[in-house]
Protein backbone atom coordinates (compact mmCIF):
# COMPACT_ATOMS: atom_id res chain seq x y z
CA UNK A 1 0.00 0.00 0.00
CA UNK A 2 1.02 3.55 -0.74
CA UNK A 3 2.89 5.07 2.18
CA UNK A 4 1.75 8.62 1.34
CA UNK A 5 -1.89 7.76 1.62
CA UNK A 6 -3.75 8.33 4.84
CA UNK A 7 -4.74 5.15 6.62
CA UNK A 8 -8.46 5.07 7.22
CA UNK A 9 -10.79 2.79 9.14
CA UNK A 10 -14.57 2.82 8.91
CA UNK A 11 -16.40 1.25 11.83
CA UNK A 12 -20.00 0.55 12.69
CA UNK A 13 -21.43 0.42 16.18
CA UNK A 14 -25.19 0.43 16.79
CA UNK A 15 -27.17 2.07 14.03
CA UNK A 16 -28.91 1.20 10.80
CA UNK A 17 -25.60 1.05 8.85
CA UNK A 18 -27.04 3.69 6.53
CA UNK A 19 -24.10 6.07 6.94
CA UNK A 20 -21.52 3.40 6.07
CA UNK A 21 -23.78 2.31 3.22
CA UNK A 22 -23.85 5.90 2.00
CA UNK A 23 -20.12 5.66 1.28
CA UNK A 24 -20.65 2.66 -0.94
CA UNK A 25 -23.45 4.56 -2.64
CA UNK A 26 -20.99 7.21 -3.91
CA UNK A 27 -20.69 5.09 -7.03
CA UNK A 28 -19.17 7.68 -9.33
CA UNK A 29 -16.57 8.60 -6.72
CA UNK A 30 -15.75 5.17 -5.26
CA UNK A 31 -12.61 4.69 -7.31
CA UNK A 32 -11.41 8.16 -6.36
CA UNK A 33 -12.14 7.44 -2.70
CA UNK A 34 -10.14 4.21 -2.73
CA UNK A 35 -7.38 5.83 -4.80
CA UNK A 36 -7.05 8.78 -2.49
CA UNK A 37 -6.99 6.88 0.79
CA UNK A 38 -5.69 3.61 2.15
CA UNK A 39 -8.88 2.04 3.48
CA UNK A 40 -7.48 -0.35 6.08
CA UNK A 41 -10.71 -1.51 7.60
CA UNK A 42 -14.27 -1.35 6.31
CA UNK A 43 -16.21 -4.45 7.29
CA UNK A 44 -19.17 -3.67 5.06
CA UNK A 45 -17.15 -3.80 1.83
CA UNK A 46 -14.03 -5.90 2.38
CA UNK A 47 -12.72 -8.92 4.28
CA UNK A 48 -8.94 -8.37 4.40
CA UNK A 49 -9.18 -5.80 7.15
CA UNK A 50 -6.12 -4.73 9.10
CA UNK A 51 -6.58 -3.35 12.61
CA UNK A 52 -3.50 -1.25 13.23
CA UNK A 53 -2.50 2.39 13.53
CA UNK A 54 -4.87 4.77 11.72
CA UNK A 55 -4.78 8.36 10.58
CA UNK A 56 -8.54 8.71 10.56
CA UNK A 57 -11.34 6.57 11.98
CA UNK A 58 -14.91 7.16 10.91
CA UNK A 59 -17.21 5.73 13.54
CA UNK A 60 -20.87 5.18 12.74
CA UNK A 61 -23.54 4.26 15.28
CA UNK A 62 -24.08 4.84 18.97
CA UNK A 63 -22.65 2.87 21.87
CA UNK A 64 -25.15 0.35 23.29
CA UNK A 65 -23.07 -2.51 24.71
CA UNK A 66 -20.00 -2.96 26.88
CA UNK A 67 -18.20 -4.64 23.97
CA UNK A 68 -18.75 -1.53 21.91
CA UNK A 69 -17.23 0.60 24.65
CA UNK A 70 -14.09 -1.54 24.47
CA UNK A 71 -14.04 -1.52 20.68
CA UNK A 72 -14.44 2.25 20.63
CA UNK A 73 -11.62 2.80 23.13
CA UNK A 74 -9.40 0.58 21.04
CA UNK A 75 -10.20 2.63 17.92
CA UNK A 76 -9.41 5.83 19.80
CA UNK A 77 -6.03 4.48 20.83
CA UNK A 78 -5.12 3.56 17.28
CA UNK A 79 -6.44 6.60 15.43
CA UNK A 80 -5.00 10.10 15.24
CA UNK A 81 -8.36 11.58 14.31
CA UNK A 82 -11.77 10.17 15.29
CA UNK A 83 -14.85 11.32 13.42
CA UNK A 84 -18.38 10.85 14.77
CA UNK A 85 -19.97 9.78 11.53
CA UNK A 86 -23.70 10.35 11.36
CA UNK A 87 -26.46 11.19 13.80
CA UNK A 88 -26.15 8.11 16.05
CA UNK A 89 -22.44 8.57 16.64
CA UNK A 90 -22.86 12.33 17.09
CA UNK A 91 -25.83 12.50 19.46
CA UNK A 92 -26.84 8.91 20.22
CA UNK A 93 -29.50 8.44 17.55
CA UNK A 94 -33.18 7.67 17.82
CA UNK A 95 -32.23 4.90 20.26
CA UNK A 96 -30.92 7.52 22.72
CA UNK A 97 -34.12 9.50 23.04
CA UNK A 98 -35.03 8.05 26.43
CA UNK A 99 -33.65 9.14 29.78
CA UNK A 100 -31.91 6.51 31.89
CA UNK A 101 -35.01 5.67 33.95
CA UNK A 102 -37.24 5.28 30.90
CA UNK A 103 -34.59 3.21 29.17
CA UNK A 104 -34.41 0.78 32.09
CA UNK A 105 -38.17 0.39 32.13
CA UNK A 106 -38.31 -0.20 28.39
CA UNK A 107 -35.47 -2.67 28.60
CA UNK A 108 -37.24 -4.59 31.34
CA UNK A 109 -40.46 -4.65 29.33
CA UNK A 110 -38.80 -6.26 26.33
CA UNK A 111 -36.04 -8.45 27.71
CA UNK A 112 -37.27 -9.03 31.23
CA UNK A 113 -34.64 -10.81 33.29
CA UNK A 114 -33.10 -12.54 30.30
CA UNK A 115 -29.42 -13.23 30.84
CA UNK A 116 -27.10 -11.63 28.26
CA UNK A 117 -24.08 -13.85 27.70
CA UNK A 118 -22.28 -12.20 24.79
CA UNK A 119 -22.11 -8.67 26.12
CA UNK A 120 -23.93 -6.43 28.55
CA UNK A 121 -26.28 -3.81 27.09
CA UNK A 122 -25.98 -0.18 28.19
CA UNK A 123 -28.14 2.84 27.53
CA UNK A 124 -27.49 4.25 24.05
CA UNK A 125 -24.99 7.12 24.05
CA UNK A 126 -23.06 9.12 21.46
CA UNK A 127 -19.42 8.14 21.11
CA UNK A 128 -18.21 11.28 22.84
CA UNK A 129 -19.71 9.92 26.05
CA UNK A 130 -16.71 7.55 26.17
CA UNK A 131 -13.89 9.01 24.08
CA UNK A 132 -12.62 12.35 22.77
CA UNK A 133 -14.04 13.08 19.34
CA UNK A 134 -12.19 15.33 16.92
CA UNK A 135 -14.79 15.95 14.24
CA UNK A 136 -18.54 15.51 13.81
CA UNK A 137 -20.49 14.87 10.65
CA UNK A 138 -24.20 14.61 11.44
CA UNK A 139 -27.01 13.34 9.21
CA UNK A 140 -29.42 10.43 9.18
CA UNK A 141 -27.83 9.21 7.01
CA UNK A 142 -25.06 11.67 6.24
CA UNK A 143 -25.63 13.39 2.86
CA UNK A 144 -23.52 12.35 -0.10
CA UNK A 145 -22.35 15.85 -1.03
CA UNK A 146 -21.70 16.58 2.61
CA UNK A 147 -19.66 13.40 3.03
CA UNK A 148 -17.58 13.90 -0.12
CA UNK A 149 -16.81 17.50 0.81
CA UNK A 150 -15.89 16.51 4.35
CA UNK A 151 -13.84 13.50 3.29
CA UNK A 152 -11.87 15.43 0.65
CA UNK A 153 -11.12 18.25 3.08
CA UNK A 154 -9.99 15.81 5.76
CA UNK A 155 -7.75 14.00 3.27
CA UNK A 156 -6.13 17.33 2.36
CA UNK A 157 -5.42 17.89 6.04
CA UNK A 158 -7.90 20.77 6.24
CA UNK A 159 -11.13 19.62 7.87
CA UNK A 160 -14.06 21.95 7.16
CA UNK A 161 -14.37 24.92 9.49
CA UNK A 162 -17.08 24.46 12.04
CA UNK A 163 -19.85 26.68 10.82
CA UNK A 164 -23.10 25.92 12.56
CA UNK A 165 -26.22 26.82 10.69
CA UNK A 166 -29.73 25.39 10.70
CA UNK A 167 -31.83 23.85 7.90
CA UNK A 168 -33.63 27.22 7.52
CA UNK A 169 -30.61 28.72 5.76
CA UNK A 170 -30.71 26.26 2.89
CA UNK A 171 -34.51 26.30 3.00
CA UNK A 172 -34.43 30.05 2.32
CA UNK A 173 -31.82 29.57 -0.43
CA UNK A 174 -34.41 27.24 -1.96
CA UNK A 175 -37.04 29.92 -1.55
CA UNK A 176 -39.60 27.74 0.19
CA UNK A 177 -42.75 29.24 1.62
CA UNK A 178 -42.03 28.86 5.35
CA UNK A 179 -44.11 26.11 6.96
CA UNK A 180 -43.53 27.27 10.51
CA UNK A 181 -45.09 30.62 9.63
CA UNK A 182 -48.13 28.75 8.35
CA UNK A 183 -48.53 27.03 11.72
CA UNK A 184 -46.90 23.74 10.75
CA UNK A 185 -44.44 22.46 13.40
CA UNK A 186 -41.22 22.60 11.37
CA UNK A 187 -38.00 21.91 13.30
CA UNK A 188 -35.78 23.58 10.68
CA UNK A 189 -34.53 26.29 13.06
CA UNK A 190 -33.33 23.65 15.55
CA UNK A 191 -31.77 21.24 13.11
CA UNK A 192 -28.26 21.09 11.68
CA UNK A 193 -28.07 21.97 7.99
CA UNK A 194 -26.73 19.54 5.43
CA UNK A 195 -29.68 17.71 3.90
CA UNK A 196 -30.48 20.41 1.36
CA UNK A 197 -33.76 21.21 3.20
CA UNK A 198 -35.23 18.25 1.41
CA UNK A 199 -38.45 18.01 3.47
CA UNK A 200 -39.58 21.66 3.24
CA UNK A 201 -38.68 21.51 -0.48
CA UNK A 202 -41.51 18.99 -0.67
CA UNK A 203 -43.79 20.97 1.57
CA UNK A 204 -43.14 18.70 4.56
CA UNK A 205 -41.94 19.98 7.93
CA UNK A 206 -38.41 19.15 9.07
CA UNK A 207 -38.53 16.53 11.82
CA UNK A 208 -34.95 17.12 12.85
CA UNK A 209 -33.13 14.09 11.48
CA UNK A 210 -29.79 15.90 11.09
CA UNK A 211 -29.76 16.36 14.85
CA UNK A 212 -29.63 19.55 16.92
CA UNK A 213 -27.95 22.54 15.29
CA UNK A 214 -25.30 24.20 17.39
CA UNK A 215 -26.37 27.65 18.47
CA UNK A 216 -30.06 26.80 18.10
CA UNK A 217 -32.68 28.15 20.47
CA UNK A 218 -34.97 25.29 21.54
CA UNK A 219 -36.60 27.32 24.32
CA UNK A 220 -37.95 29.85 21.86
CA UNK A 221 -39.18 27.28 19.37
CA UNK A 222 -40.77 25.26 22.18
CA UNK A 223 -42.82 28.25 23.35
CA UNK A 224 -43.56 29.25 19.78
CA UNK A 225 -45.06 25.85 19.01
CA UNK A 226 -46.92 25.93 22.29
CA UNK A 227 -48.36 29.31 21.40
CA UNK A 228 -49.38 27.97 18.00
CA UNK A 229 -51.57 25.52 19.89
CA UNK A 230 -49.54 22.32 19.89
CA UNK A 231 -49.73 19.93 22.80
CA UNK A 232 -46.70 20.08 25.11
CA UNK A 233 -46.16 16.33 25.05
CA UNK A 234 -46.41 16.27 21.26
CA UNK A 235 -43.80 19.04 20.98
CA UNK A 236 -41.44 17.25 23.37
CA UNK A 237 -41.83 14.03 21.48
CA UNK A 238 -41.19 15.71 18.16
CA UNK A 239 -38.18 17.59 19.45
CA UNK A 240 -36.69 14.53 21.10
CA UNK A 241 -36.97 12.10 18.18
CA UNK A 242 -33.54 12.81 16.75
CA UNK A 243 -31.87 14.88 19.44
CA UNK A 244 -30.48 11.92 21.36
CA UNK A 245 -28.88 12.72 24.69
CA UNK A 246 -28.72 16.42 23.79
CA UNK A 247 -32.40 16.68 24.67
CA UNK A 248 -31.77 15.94 28.32
CA UNK A 249 -29.50 18.96 28.40
CA UNK A 250 -32.18 21.06 26.77
CA UNK A 251 -34.91 20.14 29.20
CA UNK A 252 -32.60 20.74 32.13
CA UNK A 253 -31.80 24.21 30.90
CA UNK A 254 -35.40 24.74 29.98
CA UNK A 255 -36.54 23.89 33.51
CA UNK A 256 -34.13 26.45 34.90
CA UNK A 257 -35.12 29.11 32.40
CA UNK A 258 -38.83 28.65 32.80
CA UNK A 259 -38.84 28.90 36.58
Amino acid sequence: MNKDKLKIGIYELTGCAGCALLITDCEMELIDIFNAADIQSFLMVKSDNIEGELDIALVEGSVTTENEIEELKDIRERAKVVVAFGLCASVGGIQARFGNKEWKENYQKIYGDMEMTHTKPVQSKPIDAYIDVDLYLPGCPVGKEQFLHFFTRVLKGAPPEKYPRPVCVTCKYNENDCLLNKGIPCLGPLTADGCGSICPNHNLPCTGCWGPAEGANPTSEYFLLKEKGFDIEAIKKRMSNYSGTKLAEFFEQFKKESK
Partner: peptide, 29 residues
Protein backbone atom coordinates in the same frame (compact mmCIF):
# COMPACT_ATOMS: atom_id res chain seq x y z
CA UNK B 1 -31.97 37.70 21.79
CA UNK B 2 -34.06 35.40 23.96
CA UNK B 3 -36.54 34.82 21.13
CA UNK B 4 -34.29 34.84 18.07
CA UNK B 5 -33.98 31.37 16.56
CA UNK B 6 -30.66 32.27 14.90
CA UNK B 7 -32.17 30.90 11.71
CA UNK B 8 -30.68 33.44 9.29
CA UNK B 9 -33.95 33.96 7.44
CA UNK B 10 -34.16 37.72 8.00
CA UNK B 11 -30.83 38.43 6.34
CA UNK B 12 -31.41 35.98 3.51
CA UNK B 13 -34.68 37.67 2.56
CA UNK B 14 -33.41 41.23 3.03
CA UNK B 15 -32.64 42.87 -0.32
CA UNK B 16 -29.77 44.92 1.12
CA UNK B 17 -27.99 42.22 3.15
CA UNK B 18 -24.77 41.37 1.40
CA UNK B 19 -22.53 39.37 3.76
CA UNK B 20 -21.02 36.22 2.37
CA UNK B 21 -18.83 33.33 3.37
CA UNK B 22 -16.12 31.76 1.25
CA UNK B 23 -15.29 28.09 1.31
CA UNK B 24 -12.64 25.84 -0.17
CA UNK B 25 -14.13 22.84 -1.93
CA UNK B 26 -11.26 20.59 -2.98
CA UNK B 27 -12.08 18.15 -5.75
CA UNK B 28 -11.54 14.50 -4.94
CA UNK B 29 -9.00 12.88 -7.23
Amino acid sequence: GEACLACGSCTNVCPTCNCYNVEDKPILG
